[in-house]
């Protein structure tokens, strides 16, 4: 896509949600969220399991009707103009829903036909997509014979068959091995360069940092924070983190003596985290107190720290 077009269109809103709400019975899965995604942007939804990310994605995909608030996608109302909106979307659901009764290339062909694309156009398109997903050799396999990574790539390729304006990716790399994740990141980055608007949910912080221009952290259906990865780290964490271990018996008792060291202190059963501009300086202070950690580690603060700070360390199932 030519650069100037991208720039010119950059302020155009693709998705606008205001007070967007989804209730299942009495349960509020998405609780009045507001956000806007503009053309060519890569927008990330972060949050623990059950935060309401998939529900939000489904509403954007025009396959789940909102129960409150407003949602405009490409200037249209998903509750009434579902097929028209879906014509412009590419969807990669959290769970692959490839057609098990069809072969790899047939999955692409049939999915393209669902959009009403011609067979002639699709013949060429399928070749491009198979190459894109590195599945050329598997074209005649049944989808069950594919590995998890291959299935995911095929699902993504399938979502591109109509050359969508917006690509929705719900946890695109969960369950993949590191190689497969990196291949996917590379592919997604190329799409972004071509001007496709990406909406991605994930709970991998490295993924969010790699792929997203802007993030929204969700928890229990609400927005906890919004901004670019760097902004969020700056706002919700320190520059560095010091991790010290005194053995699981002693951490709690030692913690009392560490008061006043660092900007913020967090005591876990197995270690103590100290958030500070400089981790080394804190470590010196601790040693000066006559305490000897079993291990210590100074690292840069990451989105993960932001995430845990905002959504807590409690595991929700």
């Amino acid at each position: 896509m030519p650069k100037e077009v991208r720039k010119e269109a950059s302020a155009e809103a693709m998705i606008t949600a205001t007070g967007l709400t989804k209730k299942y019975g009495d349960f509020v899965a998405v609780d009045g969220v507001n956000f806007t995604v503009t053309r060519g942007e890569s927008f990330g939804l972060l949050g623990p399991n059950g935060a309401g990310k998939s529900t939000t994605m489904k509403m954007i995909a025009a396959t789940s009707q909102r129960t409150g608030g407003n949602l405009v996608i490409l200037g249209k109302d998903p509750n009434r103009q579902g097929p028209e909106i879906r014509a412009h979307l590419g969807v990669v659901p959290q769970q692959d829903n490839l057609d098990r009764e069809l072969k790899v290339w047939e999955n692409l062909m049939v999915y393209g036909r669902y959009f009403g694309l011609s067979r002639k156009f699709l013949k060429g398109k399928i070749e491009e997509l198979l190459e894109f997903a590195q599945l050329g050799e598997k074209r005649n396999s049944k989808t069950e014979e594919l590995s998890g990574g291959m299935k995911r790539r095929l699902t993504i390729a399938r979502g591109l068959v109509n050359e969508p304006e917006i690509l929705l990716l719900d946890e695109p790399t969960t369950g993949l091995d590191p190689q497969a994740r990196h291949i996917l990141w590379d592919r997604l980055f190329r799409l972004k360069e071509q001007g496709v608007t990406l909406v991605i949910t994930t709970h991998y912080m490295d993924e969010a940092e790699q792929l997203c221009d802007r993030l929204m952290v969700m928890d229990k259906g609400k927005i906890m924070a919004e901004g670019s990865p760097a902004e969020l780290i700056k706002k919700y964490s320190s520059r560095e983190v010091l991790e010290v271990r005194f053995g699981s018996e002693n951490n709690a008792s030692v913690a009392g003596r560490l008061k006043g060291i660092g900007e913020r202190l967090e005591v876990l059963p197995d270690r103590i985290l100290i958030y500070e501009e400089s981790g080394e300086k804190c470590l010196e202070q601790i040693i000066k107190l006559g305490l000897e950690p079993v291990t210590s580690l100074v690292r840069r603060s990451s989105l993960e720290d932001v995430f845990l700070r905002l959504t807590g360390r409690t595991l929700v199932e």
Binding site: L268, P269, R313, T314, L315, V316, E317
Partner: peptide
């Protein structure tokens, strides 16, 4: 269910 890493087991 809610499980806290800080809980003793």
């Amino acid at each position: 269910m809610s499980l806290d890493v800080r809980a003793e087991t």
